Every structure is written in structure tokens, then in C-alpha cells.
Simulated scan of single mutants.
Amino acid sequence: MKSPVLILTALLAANLHLSAQAQTVQDLNIRSLAATCANCHGTNGKAQDGSAVVSLAGMPKDYIVAQMAAFKNGTRSATVMHQLAKGYSDAQIEQIAGYFAAQKK
């Protein structure tokens, strides 16, 4: 018969592994959402020097959320961003904005 301490230790280790794994899945999901912006805004939100498109990396989260809301509701004009913004939920926009705000400029 196994010791209750060994069983408890194994259960705690399994729980920690699942928690870490769940965090990784969420992080990967957010990174994949942010990656959809790379075609125009560059990898990790860093646009090429001289580009007419702004870099998103390091912008304040609240600013990005506000701009996406303006694109989504049509109060800010754009070529394609108003269409793209409508494809994201408000929660996804918050996640994307948080991701880019955390990137170095």
C-alpha cells in the first residue's frame, strides 16, 4: 500500500502540471490571436521601419482597445481594420491589446 504522503505528493504534482499546461494553452491562444496582426503590423507588433502602418508593440493596452472599438463601431475610418475588428470579440481584443502592450517597442 502506498503512503498517503506519496499519493498526496503525486496529486499535487499532477495539479501543478495541469495548471502550468493550462496557462501555456491560454498563452498560445493569445499569441495566435496576436499573430493575425503580423501581416500588416509586423511580427510581435513591430512594423518595419518606414512603414505607413503603425507598430503595436509597447502601445498602451487601453489605447489599443479604444482604437479597435472605434474601428469595430465605424467611428474611425480605415481600409480594412473596420472589417477585421468586427471579427474579434471584446474579450479577444482585450487579450490582443494586452499582448502587444507587453511587447518591447
Rank of each mutant, 00 (worst) to 15 (best):
G87C: 00
A20R: 07
D27K: 14
A101Y: 07
K61D: 09
A97P: 01
S77E: 13
T75L: 09
K72E: 09
A78F: 06
L18E: 04
A52I: 14
T24M: 13
A38P: 05
K105W: 01
D49F: 10
M1I: 07
K72N: 14
Q48P: 01
F100P: 04
R76T: 05
Q21L: 04
C40A: 10
S32F: 09
Q26W: 05
A34P: 04
L84S: 08
L8P: 00
Q48G: 03
I93V: 15
D27V: 02
Q21E: 02
I30W: 08
L56A: 04
G45A: 02
G58T: 09
Q26S: 11
V5L: 14
Q92T: 10
Q26N: 06
V25C: 11
G98E: 01
S19V: 12
S19W: 05
I93G: 10
Y88S: 09
A20D: 07
Q23W: 04
Q26T: 11
V80H: 09
A102H: 00
V53I: 15
L16H: 07
V5N: 10
S3R: 05
Y63F: 03
A69C: 02
L28P: 00
S51G: 03
A57N: 10
I7S: 11
M1N: 11
G42L: 04
V80L: 14
Y99D: 02
P60V: 03
P4F: 08
L56E: 03
N15G: 15
Q67G: 03
A70E: 15
A38G: 07
L8M: 13
G74N: 01
A20K: 10
I30V: 15
Q95C: 06
I96E: 08
Y88C: 07
T24K: 15
A52Q: 14
L33W: 14
I93M: 13
K72M: 06
L12E: 04
M68G: 10
Y63A: 08
A66M: 05
A34N: 04
K105L: 06
T9I: 12
A52F: 14
N15I: 03
C40L: 10
S77D: 13
N39I: 07
N44P: 00
L18S: 08
P60N: 13
S3C: 05
A38Q: 13
T79S: 12
Q23L: 08
A70M: 14
Y88R: 01
D49E: 15
I93E: 07
G74C: 00
S32P: 11
N29C: 03
N73Y: 01
